[in-house]
Nucleic acid binder design. Structure first.
Length: 592
RNA sequence: GCGCCCGUAGCUCAACUGGAUAGAGCAUCUGACUACGAAUCAGAAGGCUAGGAGUUCGAAUCUCUUCGGGCGCGCCA
């Protein structure tokens, strides 16, 4: 049993972050000896894997970044810096390249030590302290409780959930939140629509559902349920009597269905916030007062929109918020003509409430059709939190459902796709989740039902799952061959010396950095591409073994070597499993 | 008319947030199974990053501009 004699990186497994520290220390040494001026900004220095692996293991831009403020040529900084970096125990070679990059080659043992960490951590490998327990609120889905979740909601649900999981892994204290829009005109219409279905359930002929109300068939069940519970009690009563009851019953029923759908999708929300409760608590009034004290509220008039002037435009004085002071295009109204709060006013109060609950970091996941709303809410958050709170809005672009390249019509009448439930029934939650995460959120997305379930390299879900299953398959084979696959943490990893093996080891060591980078950027889709690359590297190495028998994982008569290689295979499985966990996708042990 | 998002290989998408020779898959062409899963792998070919100008050591990325697409534009949520 040999233990690699390399530096341990305590509680910080991202080797690149570690080397930024090493580089900064070396630069400070140069400052102490007068080679560099005393006050320099090191914050722009990066340490990353070079694009071309032939350049080495770590590339830093330090010399180029500092050149200007140090009044030196990049190479005149790079040369002495490189000399100092070469003294580091883990660095075996280095060179200055191009305009002033410093490329470092690290000892194989350094990378094997990262593999050892992965084996020790298992699925938890890549967990980071970066977030330092800071509270983050991720609000997503937040679909109106006026009908079942649609395919369009699915993307936001998946992106939000994966982002929340990712931030959690990166060390943030994450709360997953759903804002229920159970206040305002829309839910009143829901209540009215429900009343019609209620009367229908009691045998009345209601005819066509009037325009403006919700015609969906799903409300029939709700009406029937109320009829069953209350009988004819609401018939011939004024609207003021039955509306609150119809409304709340419908909301409760539909929210229950939404929760069930989310559950099936694997989304578990921590906090459901009610808009109605918020308004009734007086939170909106308080937010309004706060803004008033800051002199950000005034009575004024707005210009009608240039493009399409509403027919019923009526120039009137209204209560406006000075969102232009915070980067918005025009000031925004907070009160409707009847004196009640606008949705915007409620939303200000809601985000203020989040801030009061301790969330300075807020992330909202919205559909692209709300794009015009981003500036004003960011402005409001900035104002109401005294610039201490920060809101990031991720807009999810449209999802189109295709079947073999043909657009599937989203029409209820045609009996085709519309709801998330339909999508889940067709391809299952794992495929929905992974596939939705293979694209940047701000790019439009075509979801092809056929391609998403295809078993080929063209389909990332399948390919990554296959990679995971293959790691397990190798383990099963090894066990059958009589190799002990327990306690691989203690396997002699220094027996790993083939370039393909070491390339895999390096890739595994990238995982903690990938987690941190994706979390910082709020971009969970990066994980999908990393997992795909890792799976590809693993499949490639696997195939080499079928051509060159000495590269097989199990080598007869050499248990140590076999165990070292199996440890590598296990680590690949851990990283894929770790990534799939972030995505909320079940890793499979076997392909069917 | 204004604001936001997008434009990268024939097609679908990446590019570590300003880094080195812009990368994958599909499709096309050439190869590899006495199977630790060939549902895979190795290779070839494919690009003026929509066009133009600017910023700097360095631009697909930042700024300006033109073109083309999506979304939105008081008292809906």
């Amino acid at each position: 049993m040999t233990k690699a004699a390399v530096s341990v990186i305590p509680a910080l497994m991202n080797p690149y972050r570690h080397f930024i520290g090493v580089i900064v220390a070396a630069l400070q040494g140069m400052q102490a000896s007068g080679e560099l001026p005393p006050s320099l900004d090191f914050s722009a220095i990066t340490a990353e894997p070079p694009r071309d692996p032939a350049h080495g293991d770590i590339a830093t831009n330090a010399a180029m970044v500092l050149a200007k403020s140090a009044a030196k040529k990049p190479r005149d900084i790079a040369e002495p810096l490189l000399a100092r970096l070469k003294a580091d125990a883990d660095v075996v070679d280095g060179a200055v390249a191009g305009p002033g990059f410093i490329n470092l080659k690290l000892a194989d043992a350094f990378w094997r030590a990262r593999l050892a960490e992965c084996l020790k951590e298992g699925i938890a490998y890549g967990d980071s302290q970066m977030g330092a327990g800071q509270k983050v609120n991720v609000e997503y889905v937040s679909a109106n409780p006026t009908g079942p979740l649609t395919v369009a909601h699915a993307r936001g649900a998946v992106v939000g959930d994966a982002l929340a999981n990712l931030l959690d892994k990166a060390g943030y204290a994450v709360t997953k939140e759903y804002y229920i829009n159970d206040s305002g005109a829309q839910v009143d219409k829901l209540g009215q629509s429900t009343y019609l279905r209620y009367k229908e359930a009691l045998g009345e002929t209601i005819g066509e559902i009037p325009t403006g109300l919700y015609p969906g068939e799903y409300l029939k069940d709700v009406g029937t349920a109320i009829a069953k519970r209350d009988g004819a009690r609401w018939i011939d009563k004024p609207e003021a009597d039955w509306l609150p009851e119809m409304r709340s019953f419908a909301i409760a029923t539909l929210m229950a269905e939404i929760r069930t759908d989310l559950e099936t999708l694997g989304v578990r929300i921590d906090v459901f916030s009610s808009e109605r409760a918020l308004v009734e608590s007086g939170a909106v009034d308080r937010a309004f007062e706060t803004l008033t004290r800051q002199k950000l509220i005034y009575q004024g008039r707005l210009e009608p929109p240039k493009g399409q002037k509403p027919d019923d435009w009526e120039d009137r004085e209204q209560t406006l918020f000075r969102s232009t002071q915070f980067g918005d295009d025009v000031d925004r109204p907070l009160k409707k003509s009847d004196g009640s709060w606008t949705y915007f006013a409620n939303d200000i109060a809601y985000h203020h409430d989040k801030f009061v609950r301790g969330f300075a970091d807020m992330i909202d996941i919205w559909g692209a059709d709300h794009g015009g709303y981003v500036k004003r809410l960011k402005a409001a958050v900035s104002a109401i939190t005294g610039k201490k709170g920060e809101l990031d809005v991720k807009l999810c672009q449209l999802v189109r459902v295709l079947k073999n390249g043909e657009l599937v019509r989203m029409s209820k009448r045609a009996g085709t796709f519309e709801t998330l439930r339909d999508l889940l029934d067709e391809v299952g939650p794992d495929v929905v989740r992974f596939t939705m995460l293979t694209r940047k959120n701000d790019a439009a997305f075509d979801f092809d039902l056929v391609k998403a379930t295809e078993q080929s390299r063209d389909n990332p879900v399948w390919y990554v799952q296959y990679g995971h299953a293959r790691t397990r398959s190798v383990m099963r084979q090894a066990a059958a061959a009589g190799i002990g696959i327990d306690g691989l943490v203690t396997a002699p990893l220094d027996r790993l010396s083939d370039t393909g093996e070491l390339a895999l080891v390096r890739l595994i060591a990238q995982w903690p950095r990938q987690v941190e980078a994706a979390a910082l950027a709020h971009e969970p889709h990066r994980i999908a591409f990393f997992l795909y690359d890792l799976a590809a590297a693993f499949h490639a190495h696997w195939t080499r073994g079928s051509k060159e028998p000495e590269l097989k994982f199990v080598i007869e008569g050499d248990a140590d070597l076999s165990r070292a290689r199996l440890a590598l295979v296990q680590a690949v499985g851990f990283v894929i499993g770790s990534g799939l966990k972030v995505f909320g996708v079940t890793p499979v042990d076997e392909m069917r």
